[in-house]
Amino acid sequence: MTKRNLVSLLLLLAVAMLFASTRPWLELQLIPSAAAHGDVTVTGTAGNKALMPVAIALLAIGAVLGIAGRALRVALGALTAVFGGWIAWSAFAGVLGGQDAEIDFAKASIAEATGILSSSPIEVVDLMQVTVWPTVTVVLGLLVLLVGIGVAVFGWKWAQGGKRYEAKGSPREKKAPRPDGSADRIADWDALSEGDDPSDELGPEDFGGGDDSAEAPGRS
């Protein structure tokens, strides 16, 4: 795959991860005696503080890939794959791994709602429902994993970032002489603006000098 496709896809997945991490992952209803407000919503970032920093790191990787060298691209691809695998695993194990995992994921939010930090918060939970967002996050993590593998495999063949903007030659090399041999004033100005001195290429004849062997006027 091309660099543009993989980088664009990675940036899109990172933005989607940022959005998904702020959505409700768990919806709880506590027993009436546990809290005045019995409904508790647990977002992805509330249950796993590392989700948003990882998504931001993926955005940074996507921005750097466009200008990175070959070895760095491979390293960033491997790191992206690791991040993707961690995202998928943490979303699955944290919420989709059963009731114990769900309670552990929501522990901080339950403690905030009840004001009591309990080792067994399941006692105050009357109803618990998992939303679609953990599953969406698992899919996003797997896609990030595939993109990271693609970057590590194909990134070695991408052209070096910034090569297209490099000059193909010095101003002297790019300046073509006129057929009649006269100086090209526009090219000279261009050379000066690029830091070159066109007078370096001029010979004595360009300054009115002639053959040294010619006899000077007035001599016998």
Rank of each mutant, 00 (worst) to 15 (best):
W86I: 13
A176G: 04
G97H: 09
F105C: 08
A46Y: 00
G85L: 12
S109I: 05
A108E: 10
T80S: 12
A60T: 12
T135Y: 09
G161I: 07
A167L: 12
L127M: 06
I67G: 05
G97L: 09
T2R: 08
A81H: 00
W89V: 09
L96Y: 02
D212M: 10
V82Q: 08
A50I: 04
D39R: 08
V151Q: 07
S21E: 03
G155S: 06
L12K: 11
G94Q: 12
P32H: 08
I186R: 10
V151T: 03
A68M: 04
T135I: 11
L145F: 14
W156D: 12
L65F: 00
E205K: 04
K163C: 02
P177F: 05
K175L: 13
T2S: 15
G69D: 14
R164I: 08
M128L: 13
D126F: 00
Q29W: 08
L146N: 01
V138K: 01
L26Y: 01
L202Y: 02
I116P: 00
G47E: 06
A187M: 06
I116R: 09
A14T: 03
S109E: 15
R4P: 00
A50W: 04
D39I: 03
D126L: 10
G38L: 03
I103W: 05
S182E: 11
E173P: 00
K107V: 09
A91Q: 07
G150H: 03
T80G: 13
A216V: 09
L192F: 07
E102H: 01
G218D: 09
W86R: 06
K175D: 14
S119D: 15
A68V: 03
P179N: 08
A50D: 12
P171L: 12
L18V: 05
I149H: 00
I186V: 14
A57E: 05
V95D: 09
D190Y: 00
A81L: 08
D126S: 14
F154G: 01
L18K: 02
L58G: 07
I103R: 05
I103L: 15
R185I: 14
A34G: 05
N48D: 15
S109H: 02
K49P: 04
E27L: 11
S213T: 15
E215K: 15
F154K: 06
A101Q: 09
A75H: 01
K3V: 01
S199R: 12
I122K: 11
S220D: 13
S90L: 09
Q160Y: 00
L72R: 11
K49R: 13
L10G: 08
P121D: 13
L145N: 03
L65M: 02
V95F: 06
G69V: 10
